[in-house]
Write a protein that binds this DNA or RNA. Structure first.
Lengths: 210, 210
DNA sequence: GTCTATATCGCGATAGAC
DNA sequence: GTCTATCGCGATATAGAC
């Protein structure tokens, strides 16, 4: 008996997936308008017409890419609930967050493009910000109620500054590499540790503390 | 005697200036490729051909806009050398920085576009980052040597986090407005004060401090 | 310096063979 | 599902009158 043939319906061409992958890379690099269907086709190894077979329009292709990317960004933030002292917990959070950004660089760049020029702000807030940010704020609020974090600080602001420290580090890095003062540009570990230390202990000299 | 006519050479048309202004606004809103010469012409109230009379190409127009914007961004950071306690100095710095961003919003958006997709990173570092960032780091280093800031923190990292806190706040604001946890999105004063407080004192509860 | 008219190109999208 | 060929349009850029 010959092996049962794979049912025809499941022998999908991978063209669609290759198109999505190529489109994500190119949209992420240069944004929507700067990316032509021709280049996507060339990069994916298919014809232009084939793209319009799988997607009804360029907009449709872009929205599918965006949708896929948003799903992959849903776990962009790690939970902060880790053992150890606060500085190490924050350093670990920042390290994971930065690592996540680089691991999902294309998706993250799409997100930045959308924040700068797009009009999907509500969708981003719901799908990316929503759960991630909510959990992070909740973690900080819990730490505050346990006395690990002093009262008076707004957990949402702290959460945002943590995210900003990683995200803007990614965005600025090419510029920082040409800034002599910013030696930390090539030392993400040092940067992460410094930020965690800064936020945990503050700037004040020890003798000044009340 | 009739009044002396204004010398012809000085009766410049303001078309060039209007083109530059319109181009800056449109490039800032949507980026390079999404902005057509036709729209710039329409917005500036001149013909397409007139734009090519004043500028040799679209690229040339964009580079002139970028050059002009960079000049106006040179004083984006205020000096930190202000009297008062450290928290208030930082709050004031952040407030002025954020105000500068909104006052020069178009130029700042162009900068973000370039950071995300451009290849002018070295020029940005030299013209925008350079002096601004250098002075800020120098201020912090001086405060450190005077004992106002504890040893162990890297002044460059602190400077960067301050900048990131303002810049990423601007970039994220449209998304934050749709994020229930981020009430500070509509309260920049509160946000600025919280960040200054956070960085000066850190997160630790008072009884934990060594 | 400013315009109208036009050239030329590459874009998104479609038609239709295989 | 995939291709070649093509359409129609708007893009950057140019020519030349005023």
């Amino acid at each position: 008996m010959s092996p049962a043939p794979v049912p025809a319906a499941t022998v999908y061409s991978d063209a669609r997936a290759r198109i999505l992958a190529a489109a994500q890379r190119l949209f992420a690099e240069s944004g929507y308008d700067s990316t032509s269907i021709s280049r996507v086709a060339q990069s994916a190894g298919v014809s232009k017409a084939n793209i319009f077979h799988h997607f009804s329009s360029k907009q449709d292709l872009y929205l599918e890419v965006l949708h896929e990317s948003r799903s992959h960004l849903e776990n962009l933030f790690d939970d902060l609930k880790l053992s150890g002292d606060l500085t190490q917990r924050l350093a670990r959070f920042l390290d994971r967050h930065l690592t996540s950004i680089y691991e999902r660089e294309a998706g993250f760049r799409l997100l930045l493009h959308e924040m700068l020029t797009g009009e999907q702000h509500e969708a981003i807030a719901k799908r990316v910000g929503g759960d991630n940010f909510r959990r992070l704020v909740a973690n900080l609020r819990a730490a505050q109620q346990q006395g690990d974090v002093r009262t008076g600080v707004d957990p949402a602001v702290v959460a945002f500054v943590l995210v900003a420290a990683s995200a803007f580090f990614y965005l600025s890095r090419p510029v920082l590499r040409h800034t002599p003062e910013a030696e930390f540009a090539d030392r993400p570990d040092h940067y992460v540790q410094q930020v965690a230390d800064l936020i945990t202990f503050g700037l004040r000299s020890v003798e000044e503390r009340s």
